[in-house]
């Protein structure tokens, strides 16, 4: 006869729950505080005049992060733009507004898809690499060696990576935007037969400089989030290969969640800013 589990057998007693909840709350607060201090230390490192070594390391990181990421960001952006055209064009055709599909593609790509897609690609490609590199440096005592030799690890390792990511994220977003719009244009105009002039006319009509800047501002903040989280996880990773692997996973998951959260907060904030700057215009965000 199967035994029936009692409450006492299946669940820990109440004090255990309370203790676990308390431990979770304390640990979460400590981790958030630690990340906050790490971010402020990085900010302080950036605001102090960067030395020649920091600048040259930043340029090297910009090449590594930016130039080498262009192909992957462009391929992803192109296909997403093309898919947007494929998915939206039938709906627009049904109501006789196929010529206006350009406006939807451009707004979607410039404000949402471009920055988010670029950020996710960067979080996966660069965030993981940064965490693995710094984590391995921590595990093999290279970060301790820097401190012992009087070099500030934040200034030497973190500042160049954060600066490079913050500078390159908006630039890569522009590439992603351009190729995304081109992908949509190829499908809509070259494949589906939408006329060229109205495609660009309505696309331009629906987009102003503020709209483009929305995407770039988002990309700037995503750059901060991706690089700070990746460097933090690398600096605090556990021992051994398992510790480095776990830190990489945590860096991507935490970075991705923070990208989505900051996207929402930025959308709200920028929407309010738009309404304040252009009170007679309909909200576009």
């Amino acid at each position: 006869m199967a035994s029936i589990k009692t409450y006492d057998e299946t669940l820990p007693s109440r004090p255990d729950y309370v203790a676990r909840l308390g431990a979770w709350a304390i640990n979460t607060n400590l981790a958030m505080g630690d990340m906050g201090v790490f971010f402020l230390s990085t900010l302080y490192g950036i605001l102090r005049w960067p030395g020649r070594r920091t600048i040259s390391e930043t340029l090297a990181q910009m090449y590594e992060m930016g130039t080498k990421s262009i192909p992957v960001v462009m391929v992803a952006g192109g296909f997403i733009g093309a898919v947007l055209a494929v998915e939206t064009l039938p709906q627009f055709r049904e109501i006789g507004l196929a010529s206006r599909v350009g406006s939807v593609i451009v707004i979607s790509v410039v404000k949402q898809v471009g920055p988010i897609l670029t950020a996710v690609m960067l979080a996966g490609r660069l965030g993981g690499a940064m965490t693995a590199e710094l984590g391995t440096m921590r595990v093999t005592e290279q970060i301790d060696a820097l401190r012992v030799m009087g070099a500030d690890p934040i200034r030497t390792l973190v500042v160049p990576r954060v600066l490079a990511c913050v500078i390159m994220a908006p630039i890569l977003t522009l590439y992603s935007d351009a190729i995304g719009i081109l992908g949509g244009w190829v499908v809509a105009v070259q494949v589906e037969g939408v006329r060229n002039y109205p495609f660009w006319h309505y696309a331009a009509q629906s987009t102003d400089l503020f709209t483009v800047n929305v995407g770039l501002v988002k990309a700037f903040f995503f750059g901060i989030v991706i690089s700070t989280v990746a460097c933090y996880k690398g600096f605090r990773c556990g021992n051994g290969a398992q510790g480095v692997g776990r830190a990489c996973t945590e860096a991507f998951v935490t970075g991705f969640c923070l990208i989505l959260l900051s996207n929402f907060i930025l959308a709200l904030g920028l929407n309010n800013l738009y309404n304040a700057l252009y009170p007679n215009q309909p909200s576009v965000l």
Binding site: T140, E141, Q142
Partner: peptide, 14 residues
């Protein structure tokens, strides 16, 4: 630290 040299267990070369 300037007056102290440290040889790490794993060498810790960059």
């Amino acid at each position: 630290r300037k007056k102290i040299g440290f040889l790490f267990q794993l060498s810790a070369l960059f």
